[in-house]
Design a protein around this nucleic acid. Sequence first.
DNA 1: TTGCGTGCAAAGGTTTTGCATGGCA
DNA 2: TGCCATGCAAAACCTTTGCACGCAA
Lengths: 141, 141
Amino acid sequence: MDKGTGYKTKQRQAILDYLMENKDKHVTAASISEHLEKDGARVGTTTIYRHLDKLLEQGLVRKYMIDGTTSSCFQYADQQGKCKEHFHLKCGKCGKLIHMNCSHFEELYEHILEDHGFEIDFFRTVFYGICRDCKKTEEDL
Amino acid sequence: MDKGTGYKTKQRQAILDYLMENKDKHVTAASISEHLEKDGARVGTTTIYRHLDKLLEQGLVRKYMIDGTTSSCFQYADQQGKCKEHFHLKCGKCGKLIHMNCSHFEELYEHILEDHGFEIDFFRTVFYGICRDCKKTEEDL
DNA sequence: TTGCGTGCAAAGGTTTTGCATGGCA
DNA sequence: TGCCATGCAAAACCTTTGCACGCAA
């Protein structure tokens, strides 16, 4: 069951560090690559994907797709459970993605689970709509 | 605001027909292509994608990403208007789409609007998760 | 030393774009 | 006739695979 974590290489550590530094938002393979390169710790794309796969199997990261994007998003899976409260709002006008922690959603989660028998994946679920800024711009027209 | 539906071509009709015949499930660009070819109504991949894009803009179809697949899924969106008033739950396992009429969501809408300044688009927002049946199957393993 | 880890190059798959031709209105 | 629609070929992307070399244990 436990297959260990493999060798401790600096590439693995760099990727893990970046994921943990950004546990409040999601990242893509490309953004990891870009960031590490800036840090002078270049890691091949192949290696990034292979580690993400492994971390996924071990349950250390989550993977999901955001509509309108073509690449997979990854996020460090916080074991404290608070990540269940994290959800996203995406503005259909400017494309802005808002990461948001709000306790309001616990009861929604419970309600849907109890009354509708459906377990929501807040990580993957994205609310589409229009943000404050874009709405203001529209009204000004 | 209304930009019409463009010319009435047989390709457009064939795609729309297929989507409507399968409004209870989702399809991919590839499955549309395959099906139409069998029907002797071959339509180029490019054309399929371009129509799906347009239908998406017009709100006639929904687009999803399903777990473990690499391609986008599309599903005909019922236009009787009733779908504009409720949320949808989509099971990431079996792909089932659940229409949910529930007053619980009105307050959610209000909360996000007031406290987060974000106006949710009911029609485009889909909750991803896992349905009762699939969850049961998972637990049986 | 052993075997996993790494990364380049190339392949695979989906979706988009350029461009010349075809067809609706 | 004037545009939009179509579809081939090619490009653009993201992700995976093959393979030889590197490195942790």
